[in-house]
């Protein structure tokens, strides 16, 4: 029964990893950008929520509803100003720009909030759980993460396959130059993709901060989990990212059941094994 609990907890954690990795996966799938500031953006979302909860009378759910659109707008603006300029200069330039952004964000957070470890007080939502029996309880926040991941990924897939803008996103991902010849502005399409990516990273960052403590320098270690989820699942495939996140969460949780100290290492080993033996990932990309 304890093992079953470890499996279920792993799926909940994996759902959050998948949600967190979605933005990384979208930006890679559409623009071939590896966003090294991805983890830091999630941490920025955590601190933004902390600031809003502390300084306004907004309840936490309202903070979530405010933070996500703020991040979308930020994503669109950042793409159009900073990232689009670096895209023309090749993959190395985008890596350097996002790496620089990562350093800047960490230091701004450090200046503004100090290096202290913080927690976001989420009240009963963070501590309540569904008790299935003596050994198995599923936390609300964990379930929320998994449900949010599945809903988000299904919604994005529908958006990409059914809507006009989604089709353009696939077209621009395939060949941006031709996309502009058929009448679409690749920069605008990329901006929308980045806005979606930032919205998901904000949501993931907020859920992270309700589950565990955070500090300004925790971004890169979180980025690693998102990166592992994306690679395990298959670069550029959102269903793959969902599966990759779940596989990573499951591995960490089950190994932790036997030896907590080896949990993170086990996740890294699964990642390495996928890179070595199935580099295309569990579900290779078709489109986006």
């Amino acid at each position: 029964m304890d093992l079953l609990n470890a499996v279920l907890q792993g799926l909940l954690l994996g759902g959050l990893y998948a949600l967190f990795a979605t933005g990384l996966s979208i930006m890679f799938g559409v623009m071939r950008i590896v966003n090294l500031a991805h983890g830091d953006l999630a941490v920025v979302a955590s601190f933004l929520a902390l600031a809003l909860v502390t300084n306004t009378f907004l309840p936490l759910w309202a903070v979530v509803l405010v933070a996500i659109p703020i991040f979308s707008v930020l994503g669109y603006a950042l793409q159009r100003t900073l990232i689009q300029r670096s895209l023309g200069a090749g993959p190395l330039a985008t890596l350097l720009v996002t790496f620089g952004l990562s350093i800047v964000l960490q230091n701004v957070l450090l200046e503004s909030f100090s290096a202290d470890t913080r927690t976001l007080e989420a009240g009963s939502f963070a501590t309540s759980a569904i008790e299935l029996n003596d050994t198995i309880s599923l936390s609300y926040i964990g379930l929320f993460g998994l449900v949010a991941a599945v809903v988000t990924i299904v919604a994005i897939q529908l958006f990409v396959s059914r809507t006009r803008t989604g089709r353009m996103m696939r077209a621009a991902s395939d060949d941006p130059e031709t996309a502009s010849v058929v009448g679409a502005s690749p920069a605008h399409i990329y901006g929308i993709a980045t806005a979606i990516a930032f919205a998901t990273v904000a949501l993931a960052g907020l859920i992270f901060s309700m589950r565990s403590s955070f500090d300004p320098s925790i971004g890169p270690s979180r980025l690693l989990f998102a990166f592992e989820a994306v690679v395990i699942g298959g670069l550029g495939s959102l269903w793959g990212t969902l599966l990759g996140g779940l596989a990573l969460g499951l591995t960490q949780s089950v190994v932790s059941h036997y030896d907590p100290a080896s949990a993170v290492l086990a996740g890294h080993l699964v990642f390495l094994a996928v890179l070595a033996f199935r580099p295309q990932g569990l579900i290779p990309a078709r489109a986006v």
């Binding site: 089709r167 696939r170 077209a171 395939d174 060949d175 130059e177 031709t178 996309a179 078709r286 489109a287």
Partner: peptide
């Protein structure tokens, strides 16, 4: 050289 969006 034709450049269709191959995956669509």
């Amino acid at each position: 050289i034709p450049r269709p969006f191959e995956k669509m």
